[in-house]
């Protein structure tokens, strides 16, 4: 199993001239699960967007490295090809673009040497759809078009499983999922964890953390990581909120 490491070094970023990330340091290795918590508006989603290279966010300082390679200013597709994947907090609709076409194109881009025959690829997609309890009819629907909140999340997970990234950021994957779906999603995360994938799980809730037990818990407040700890941190946040953590 190859190892991958995502390093975030003193990362500062702004959007529309406003500084949101104020010097983040964080390292995620293969086979590690990190939880990232923090109050609304702290900058958690911004960190995800900056990591995948959303052009609306401007990095003003610091570095992002994957296996030592500087990707701070790389195109989103280069980062995806390096193994990075973000499950978005609010996955967007792309009208008229069929899921089957999209998945196939994405896969072929990430694995240009594999050339999986269409039928085999379809079967793989079908299997994963079963695993995340998505009806196979979704395959001919347009990306997130008319999907419910939970369906959007399942589709993010479906993509995660199919596209086989090495480092995964899950932005509130647990919000909007029903209890059964959350179990299925946790199971997928564990499977990938066992295959040496590294995770950064952004969440507000204990439920998902109970299922997958992160080794590291970080707290982001006002654009800075103000605490690094373990499960005891998330337990205390559950009871007391964020006030006890000093910036």
């Amino acid at each position: 199993m190859t190892n991958t490491v995502l390093e975030i070094k003193n990362l500062k970023a702004e959007v529309e001239g406003k500084e949101i990330l104020k010097g983040i340091n964080l390292t995620v290795n293969s086979g590690e699960i990190h939880a990232l918590m923090g109050p609304n508006g702290a900058g958690k989603s911004t960190l995800g967007e900056v990591l995948i290279g959303h052009p609306n966010y401007k990095v003003t300082d610091g570095k992002i490295l994957i296996n030592g390679k500087d990707i701070t200013y790389a195109a989103p597709e280069e980062r995806a090809r390096a193994g990075l994947f973000l499950a978005f907090q609010n996955p967007i609709t792309v009208s008229g673009v069929k899921i089957s076409t999209f998945l196939r194109m994405a896969y072929n881009n990430l694995y240009p040497d594999q050339k999986i025959p269409l039928k085999e690829f379809f079967n793989m997609v079908k299997t994963v759809m079963n695993d995340v309890d998505m009806d196979v009819s979704f395959i001919s629907r347009a990306i997130n078009d008319g999907f419910s909140g939970g369906e959007r999340k399942r589709f993010e997970v479906l993509q995660m499983v199919i596209l086989k990234p090495k480092i995964v950021i899950l932005d509130e994957i647990d919000s909007g999922l029903d209890v059964d779906a959350l179990k299925l999603v946790s199971a997928e995360i564990k499977k990938m964890y066992n295959e040496n994938v590294g995770f950064l799980i952004i969440t507000h809730y204990q439920r998902i953390l109970k299922d997958i037990a992160p080794e590291f818990v970080h707290v982001l407040k006002d654009g800075k990581i103000v605490m690094n700890g373990d499960k005891t941190v998330s337990d205390r946040i559950e009871d007391e909120g964020y006030d006890w953590i000093k910036e």
Binding site: P55, A80, G96, A106, N109, L163
Partner: peptide
């Protein structure tokens, strides 16, 4: 960005969106 974050190049992503529009 959504499409590109899954590995599609900018060209591929924009033509996919245009084809979706049609």
């Amino acid at each position: 960005t959504y499409l590109r974050s899954r590995g599609l190049s900018e060209d591929e992503a924009s033509s996919m969106i245009v084809l979706g529009f049609m």
